[in-house]
Amino acid sequence: MTEPKRLLLGILLATGAGWSLLVWMPLTKLGPAGPGGAPFGRAAVGGRIYAANGCASCHTQVVRPANLGSDIARGWGARRTTPPEYREEHIVPLGVLRLGPDLANVGERRTDVRWYYRLLYDPRTIFPGSLMPSYRYLYARVPLLGTPLPDALPLAGRAALAPGFQVVPRPEARALVAYLLSLQRVPPAEADQSQ
């Protein structure tokens, strides 16, 4: 066998070894899909919006064990996250940076839908000086006809609108909030039972 052929074979085998160990084997260990199947509905759409807007650039969805960080002490989860908690998902944004809190369990910590709407519209009204960008493009400015709509944001000060208008979340914002509320990977009750 000539040297280039030996090299090509070696590269193929090394790539195949990495592939088998780190990609194929984890998938076989996961087993067949569960009866519930993949997430669907508004939360699943919200997952795609989460991915499309690059939320994983600043937020992780991984609770590390107590010996590898303060995640549990911060209340981001009652225990470390394990593979079954991601089992049926096709978007698995584990994340690369923490320029904000971990979101693996955020649906357990924050349950007020309106809080999320306010945060996404203008994060600085909740966390002054925050780095989080505003997602105003996920909202619509609509005329105020009589009583404000139930989801209309209570805007005051610099963010206040001209009289006769209100700001309401678009379907994308509703889906994103539904997804965030669905993130309850390590509920405390389950963690208590497992101990």
Partner: peptide, 30 residues
């Protein structure tokens, strides 16, 4: 040769509906 072999395999694998969960995370970082 690495780029088309691995890139092609990763792209095909990601579009297989049976590939899910943490296997997507390990595929991404591999």
């Amino acid at each position: 040769v690495w780029i088309p072999w691995a890139g092609g395999a990763a792209a095909l694998w990601l579009h297989d509906p049976s590939v899910r969960g943490v296997a997507i995370g390990s595929l991404e970082w591999w």
